[in-house]
Every structure is written in C-alpha cells, then in structure tokens.
C-alpha cells in the first residue's frame, strides 16, 4: 500500500477519530487522533495495516495553544511509509492511555515522555522516571515554561 491508501484506510475505519490526515512526502504521512481512541487506532495499525515498528514516542509543548501533542512515530516493514500520529492533550492535565499493550517497546518511551513533559500515561505497567534523578521529577524540564535553568553562568566563564 502506498501513502494515499493507508490514509484512506485509516479515515474510513475511524471517521470521527482521525483528523488532519495528510501526505507529507512519499515516505511520510501524518495524522491527528483523538486521545481517547489511541489504543484502538494503534491496534488497527499494527494488526490490519502491518505497522509493526514503533520508532519513538515523544511530545511537543504547544504553549501558545495551551496543549501538549504526544507524537507516535510508527513505521512499517511492508510499506515504505512512516506514520506520524499525534494526539492533542490539555496542557494542565495531560492524560492519555498507554499503548504498551499494543507496542511493548513503548514502555521506556512513555516513561521518558512522562519525566520530561509530565504526560500521565494511564494503565502503564511501571510509570516512573527513566533517566532523571528523583528530585527533578515534577519539574518537567522540557516544557517551555520550565524555570529551573541555572540563572547565572559558571563562575569560570564570567
């Protein structure tokens, strides 16, 4: 299947869930999904459309729109296409269902997104900090309004 067919299959299966689906290039397609239905969309992608490779889970802090986009990069071994699937979440309480039951390797990606952006993944098997120390948890350092940077430079530079 090429990119157009994948988009057509997705939008006909989930007409109310998938929005803004478009072809970025020959190998890239992007789509927005409703946050509540993300597990169903991922399950359909994996089982029906042969998208078996979850490359990354990350997030984008859209501070002007007051929302956080969770980004799933899902690739396939059968079609030469990478799907960029996004889900909009409210910025004050970002919560989304975990996709670990579908893609098992999303475990550490979701933990990293949790410690850097504060996105709560519901029903995650072990949601705790991955790399950051415990005292930095709760600061969410990659959010745009993070205030914890050292406000003076190193002594030797001044």
């Amino acid at each position: 299947m090429d990119a157009e067919q994948i988009i057509k299959s997705l939008t006909t299966k989930f007409p109310d869930v998938i929005s803004d689906a478009k072809v970025d290039s020959d190998i890239r397609i992007s789509a927005y999904s409703e946050a509540e239905k993300i597990v169903e969309v991922c399950k359909y992608l994996k089982e029906e459309l042969q998208f078996g490779h979850l490359s990354a889970v990350t997030a984008i802090d859209q501070i002007q729109k007051n929302e956080i986009d969770v980004v799933y990069l899902i690739a396939s071994y059968d079609h030469p296409v990478v799907l960029k699937l996004k889900a909009r979440l409210p910025r004050d309480n970002p919560e989304i269902e975990s996709i670990v039951p579908v893609y098992w390797n999303a475990n550490w990606y979701e933990r990293e997104t949790y410690e850097l952006f504060g996105v709560q993944f519901k029903n995650h098997p072990d949601l705790r900090n991955l790399v950051l120390p415990d005292e930095l948890l709760g600061d969410w350092p990659l959010r745009k309004d993070y205030k914890g940077f050292p406000n003076r430079t190193a002594k030797n530079l001044v």
Partner: peptide
Amino acid sequence: SISGGPFYESYSTVQNIDK
C-alpha cells in the same frame, strides 16, 4: 568539567564543580 562547556546552562548538570 571546568566551566560546563556546551552544557553550562542545562537543567541536569552541576555548576562549578571546583566548589
């Protein structure tokens, strides 16, 4: 390690290691 280098303004590094 002397001054922080490219990471002198990072959220996760320790400043002024000589202290």
